[in-house]
């Protein structure tokens, strides 16, 4: 039986009380984005060309920043251990984590994207594609970061290891997302790339929770 409600309520309450957990990655996202015009120069045309890659790299890094603390507290105070020991299906716990993670890191990026588009001089047709890639891509980012966090939850040096593990898994997503935005900026069809992203998302949605559950069990035993 999947009982999502109580778990999700608990996750959201935790997020509401620990605002730094989700505010800091969002701030980080904006700061990384504002560093690029300073680094490569404020030329509007140049910014429009590099915008797809820059936005996605900033999104990857900010999601990674949020990922490290996903299971840490629940592991330290014994919640994960109790859940495994109680023989409750872990699925609802994992799904609640996933949903809360997307709501707190993925959704703010989607909501911020109009601002980002203004900052980086992205025009309207490209912006719509950017919004679509973010909508399709950020849930996949959440799935992969939950997986990485579950794998490294009891590791001694989690932070940098987590980056080493999940950044390679992010690469296909990065390729297709920026390919879609690039195609759109040249007025080429971009539906193929979006379809591949949707396929990756559905595939990961089916398999990642299974891997997360077994990773949590290994880390507890």
């Amino acid at each position: 039986m999947v009982t999502l409600g109580p778990f999700l309520k608990r996750e959201l309450r935790l997020l509401a009380r620990q605002k730094a957990d989700w505010l800091n990655p969002v701030l980080f996202f904006i700061i990384v984005l504002s560093l690029f015009p300073l680094g490569v120069g404020p030329e509007p045309n140049l910014l429009r060309i590099i915008a797809p890659g820059v936005i996605w790299i900033a999104a990857l890094l900010s999601v990674l920043l949020a990922a490290e603390r996903l299971f840490k507290d629940d592991y330290r105070n014994g919640v994960v251990e109790q859940l495994v020991a109680s023989r409750q299906p872990l699925l609802s716990f994992v799904l609640a984590k996933l949903l809360a993670n997307w709501l707190s890191t993925g959704l703010p990026l989607v909501l911020l994207s109009p601002l980002v588009a203004l900052l980086l001089n992205v025009d309207m047709p490209s912006f719509i594609v950017m919004l679509l890639t973010l909508l399709l891509g950020t849930p996949l980012l959440s799935l992969l970061s939950v997986l990485g966090a579950a794998l490294t939850v009891s590791a001694d040096k989690g932070g940098i290891l987590l980056a080493l593990l999940i950044l390679p898994l992010y690469i296909p997503l990065l390729i297709f997302a920026s390919a879609a935005m690039e195609a759109a900026s040249m007025a080429l069809p971009y539906h193929g790339q979006l379809a591949v992203m949707l396929a990756m998302l559905l595939f990961a949605l089916a398999l990642v929770p299974v891997a997360v559950i077994s990773a949590l069990k290994i880390n507890v035993s």
Binding site: L151, S154, A155, K157, G158, L165, P168, I218, N219
Partner: peptide, 28 residues
């Protein structure tokens, strides 16, 4: 990178057995 991740992950746990299991999961 995946190979390096498996190697790094296996060495990151104080318990060698946990490290081996988690690295196996990543390999799969």
């Amino acid at each position: 990178f995946l190979y390096l991740g498996v190697i790094a992950l296996s060495g990151a746990f104080s318990d060698r057995q946990t490290g081996a299991k988690v690295a196996s999961l990543l390999a799969v």
